[in-house]
């Protein structure tokens, strides 16, 4: 077993939680953060010097998707074919909804990449509560390395080779979590919420398949599993943002209240545009996008979705 340190990039709540989880497994951790905060636990060395990451084999990346490309370009100087890179973002890049694993591969010489997703929220991970997640990667050693770093008695990690499926599912569930928070906030009942989210997952699957994903990935931990946690009340930032919007807060204020970068804000409109180009239907994403930018109020949103003709599921 390798005793190389585990690298973690990103000093936000999720990056810190990953570092704590790895330290709990007895691994030495290099936590890279631009702001270099104090170490959250013993065994974690916080640094703003990326060259230190060269010593790691596995590097976990927990930065918001708009920063992934520049972070990858910075890491490129220190990483090569020996390293394994796994991101934990709910983002997709650009109007083509490009998976971030592709961005990592393009900007660095690392090829063994992966994505960590599923119902893992930072606070529960840091506290060591029993959790499960999924690693999407084409490489068995990436799967094993993530398990060895943060898996264990309180974190069951499943794996799939459908990398893009996990990335799209994670992004779309982020969007749907926001919708769930919003609906709860305006008093939508459980039945209506279930209809919205089920149709939303069907939409996610269509988008995913157009990008090369497998349908069944959306039924697993990366899709429905993750969404169930949001509905059950895991208090993730996306749900908080949805609730704040439901109270009528302007977007900027709502984001501040949610307290984290939320990918769904920029993704909804891009999903809508992508679907239009690919000839797919994406009414849920389009409605969420209108709600986010304030062009559609709560009643309008419900009315629009209910007005759509229903056919065979």
């Amino acid at each position: 077993m390798s005793r190389m340190p585990v690298g973690v990039v990103g000093g936000g709540p999720f990056g810190r939680a990953l570092a704590v989880a790895a330290a709990r497994n007895g691994r030495s951790v290099l936590l890279w953060s631009r702001r270099a905060p104090a170490a959250p636990a013993p065994g974690i060395v916080v640094t703003d010097d990326a060259s230190a990451l060269e010593r790691a084999e596995l590097v976990l990346v927990a930065v918001p998707s708009p920063h992934i490309a520049s972070i990858a370009a910075m890491l490129s100087r220190w990483l090569d074919g020996r390293h394994l890179l796994v991101h934990a973002s709910r983002g997709l890049e650009g109007d083509g909804l490009r998976p971030l694993s592709h961005v990592l591969r393009e900007r660095t010489a690392v090829r063994r990449v992966g994505v960590l997703a599923g119902p893992i929220v930072a606070a529960a991970l840091e506290a060591g509560a029993p959790l499960g997640g999924i690693v999407g990667t084409l490489f068995g050693e990436v799967e094993e390395a993530v398990r060895a770093a943060i898996g264990g008695p309180t974190l069951r990690l499943y794996a799939t080779r459908d990398v893009v499926g996990v990335e799209v599912a994670a992004a779309m569930v982020g969007l749907l979590s926001l919708a769930a928070g919003f609906c709860r906030g305006i008093g939508v009942g459980p039945g209506s919420l279930a209809v919205l989210l089920s149709r939303g997952m069907a939409e996610a699957r269509r988008i995913g398949q157009a990008l090369g994903a497998e349908a069944r990935t959306f039924e697993g931990l990366a899709g429905h599993g993750d969404l169930l946690a949001a509905v059950a009340g895991d208090e993730r930032p996306e749900v908080r943002l949805g609730r704040a919007l439901a109270r009528g807060l302007p977007l900027a204020e709502a984001v501040r209240e949610a307290g984290a970068h939320i990918e769904g804000v920029s993704i909804a409109r891009r999903v809508q545009r992508f679907a239009a180009r690919a000839g797919l239907e994406a009414p849920v994403s389009a409605t969420i996008a209108d709600v986010i930018d304030g062009s559609l109020g709560p009643e309008g949103a419900i009315a629009r979705l209910m007005a759509r003709p229903a056919g065979l599921e």
Binding site: S2, A109, E141
Partner: peptide, 20 residues
């Protein structure tokens, strides 16, 4: 010879290495 995106020559054996 293989070259990284930032222009360094890299050793392809790295891609075939796991846990050292």
């Amino acid at each position: 010879r293989s070259v990284s995106p930032d222009g360094r020559r890299i050793d392809p054996v790295g891609y075939l290495t796991s846990s050292g």
